[in-house]
Design a protein around this nucleic acid. Structure first.
Length: 477
RNA sequence: GUCCCCUUCGUCUAGCCCGGUCUAGGACACCUCCCUUUCACGGAGGUAACGGGGGUUCGAAUCCCCCAGGGGACGCCA
């Protein structure tokens, strides 16, 4: 049996941490089992479609390289892969279902249904359809259908509980009495998600349905559809939901947690994928230390039965760590491509500059902190002022500058020259350690912390280093 | 309100199905030390958890029951 999984987003939103993780798990499972991953656009409700949403999903999924084998853009043997292009199929299947189960027209207005629900709620009863239209005769219903709007409902008779054997949650069951007769298609004739989704999963031969836990209660109704229509019920896997860092709902912060946003903030796909895979799943003992996994490794290791049941809270710190780990695997050329110099004057030295700060950066964006060292240092800050105006700072810098000029005049290499100049200056004045190096560091960069001084000086060039030392001496004076 | 699901370090988790090997392991973060002219990287340590209460058992994080807390669903949304 070839495993087939799918990701079926509604084109009303965008790819965010929550649905990206769902897509990832479905994708990884298909890959781990040598199966196929399918993209289906769930656009049954035309009113909710947001322009550009589908394209945005496709772009972000492609960026993450969660590549699909069948989908709306590339087609496939069991298409179409967009719900809006499958209305004739839903119509046909609804007609078929009508002959297999008690499916009836419901003429209740939204207002009536709303009142029913309020009453039920006040009576502390299960909120479900009251069955008002169930008793309308077929003849009457047909007659009224000519002039009144109606929806199709499927009747759920009492009986044995509906059960699901979930890959993650195990055995789950629901009493039929609490399910209620549910809507299959709207007054407009368009099927609702519950029905269309089940039809699509069946006809597109999905073997595994991987989705969020928020769908769990829908699943009982869909199982009823699968069973009465003679479809093969897929294996379900309901993923735990992801919560925000503060323990609240992720949706509150959805705006800042879009995959697109993370990408713009400088997270790379390997880091995001690695982090997301660990949100609710763990590989168990892999025989190696650490939790860094490349996408290719995940495609081998992943399995649904190792998904955790409890919900996970999103944590930027771990994302940062893993992103940094994966950035370490990138070559300087790749880093430069991801973070090109913003100032064209820095282009010739940019790669060397990135090399100085690459291990310091959690994200691609953080690489740009090297700009701070390439640009003119600011001595006006409290710390810089304090260090430059300290007791022997000015003298140390003057001595150092003197040695450096001499060294450069003799055409010695800047790296060696600067190092010796600082040391000689220290010897002359009896300075060492931070008292000696901090004035030079601050003179050249403006701050006490940063990349190694000598390599940085090499990038800046002798003339620039001399210039900065002179400026610092002037400031100190 | 009703139904369903969940609950191990601050966070992500291993272990749970098949009770003892768990004085509960790993990762992130944090702290300490080493490396180092600084920060970081890297290396070595450390602090830190089985939601509560009953049972079953010689023995329970692991099995059973109750409670509490959290989440989800209850739409002519998906």
């Amino acid at each position: 049996m070839v495993v087939r999984t799918r990701f079926a987003p509604s084109p009303s939103g965008f790819l965010h941490l929550g649905n990206a993780r769902t897509a990832l798990f479905a994708f990884l499972y298909a890959r781990a089992k040598g199966g196929r991953f399918i993209l289906r656009i769930e656009d049954t409700d035309q009113e909710r479609i947001v322009a550009g949403s589908e394209a945005s999903f496709i772009e972000d999924l492609k960026w993450l390289q969660l590549t699909w084998d069948e989908g709306p853009d590339i087609g496939g043997p069991l298409g179409p892969y967009r719900c809006s292009e499958r209305y004739d199929i839903y119509e046909r299947e609804l007609k078929r279902l009508t002959k297999l189960a008690r499916v009836y027209r419901c003429f209740c207005t939204p207002d009536q249904l709303d009142q029913d629900r309020k009453l039920l709620s006040s009576q502390k009863k299960v909120i479900k359809y009251v069955g008002r239209c169930l008793s309308i005769s077929e003849a009457d219903a047909t007659k009224r259908a000519a002039t009144e709007p109606f929806v199709w409902r499927m009747h759920v008779p009492d009986g044995a509980p509906v059960t699901i054997e979930d890959s993650i949650r195990g055995h789950v069951e629901m009493q039929r009495e609490v399910i209620g007769d549910f809507v299959l298609s709207r007054a407009s004739g368009v099927p609702v998600f519950l029905f269309a989704n089940a039809v699509d999963d069946a006809l597109q031969e999905m073997t595994h349905v991987v989705r969020g836990e928020d769908h769990l209660s829908n699943t009982f109704r869909q199982v009823l559809i699968f069973q009465t229509m003679g479809y093969k019920t897929p294996q379900f896997a309901h993923l735990p939901l992801i919560g925000a860092e503060d323990g609240g709902k992720l949706s509150k912060r959805e705006g800042s947690l879009g995959i697109r946003d993370l990408r713009e903030q400088g997270y790379i796909r390997e880091g995001i994928l690695n982090y997301l895979s660990l949100l609710g799943w763990s590989p168990g003992d892999t025989g190696k230390t650490g939790e860094k996994f490349k996408p290719e490794e995940l495609m081998k290791l992943f399995d649904l039965d190792r998904v955790h049941k409890g919900r996970a809270l999103f944590d930027f710190q771990k994302l940062n760590f893993l992103n940094q780990q994966h950035m370490n695997d990138l070559s300087l050329a790749e880093l430069e491509r991801l973070a090109p110099p913003k100032n064209s004057a820095w282009a010739p030295i940019w790669k060397d500059a990135l090399a100085l700060v690459r291990h310091d950066a959690h994200t691609v964006q953080e690489l740009y902190k090297v700009e701070k060292f390439l640009g003119q240092p600011d001595y006006q800050t409290d710390n810089a002022t304090k260090i430059l105006k300290a007791d022997k700072s000015k003298q140390a810098l003057e001595k150092g500058l003197q040695y450096l000029k001499q060294s450069l005049g003799e055409n010695k290499a800047l790296e060696e020259g600067l190092k010796q100049s600082i040391q000689s200056s220290g010897k002359d004045l009896g300075l060492k350690g931070k008292d000696l190096y901090f004035p030079f560091r601050v003179a050249i960069t403006g701050v006490e912390a940063g990349p190694e001084l000598v390599p940085l000086a090499k990038i800046l060039g002798g003339q620039e280093v001399v210039h900065r030392l002179e400026r610092a001496i002037q400031f100190a004076g």
